[in-house]
């Protein structure tokens, strides 16, 4: 159904718009603990940029940039970042995700360590949400075959 179309207006607008969408997503992730936003919303916006690329071109265009093997690795990597920061706090003798204790291993004070660990958790959540959303969309679009995205 969704073949590679040669509409130059849609492809040029997508190519111009995608870097700004991704930059805004990175801003939402990185600025999430000072302003509205965070890992989940930023990951969704980052996935929306890949969905825009898949709609404007085709599934293979996205799969060349974000193959299924990389998507699966990114899903696991985000969960591992989240759980690793939580377990690092547990190892140092505090509760799970009690970031203040991390000032013993980081060269900063407790308040700064709390902000840095929150940023790390947001990055992990954002990576996982982005990879899961792109993977769900590609599977839905191509009925699990990861080809042109087709119906019979």
């Amino acid at each position: 159904m969704i073949k590679r179309n040669e509409d130059i207006i849609i492809q040029t607008v997508t190519r111009l718009l995608t870097p700004f969408v991704q930059l805004f997503a990175l801003y939402v992730i990185a600025h999430g603990h000072y302003s509205p936003g965070g890992g989940f919303q930023g990951g969704c916006i980052l996935a929306a940029s890949f969905i825009l690329m898949a709609v404007a071109n085709d599934v293979a265009f996205v799969k060349r940039r974000l193959p299924e093997r990389l998507t699966t690795a990114l899903i696991s990597a985000g969960v591992l970042i989240y759980a690793g920061i939580g377990l690092a706090c547990l190892m140092l003798g505090a509760n799970f995700l009690d970031y203040g204790i991390l000032h013993r291993v980081l060269p900063v004070d407790a308040v700064k360590a709390r902000a840095l660990a929150t940023l790390g958790v947001e990055i992990g959540v954002g990576i996982t949400v982005m990879a899961v959303m792109v993977s769900i969309f590609l599977n839905l679009l191509s009925a699990g075959r990861h080809e042109e995205g087709a119906v019979e």
Binding site: C44, V55, L140
Partner: peptide
């Protein structure tokens, strides 16, 4: 509004 509408439309194509 963004992601779930895209998911619904991708499912409606099937």
């Amino acid at each position: 509004a963004g992601i779930s509408t895209a998911f619904f439309i991708a499912a409606i194509y099937q």
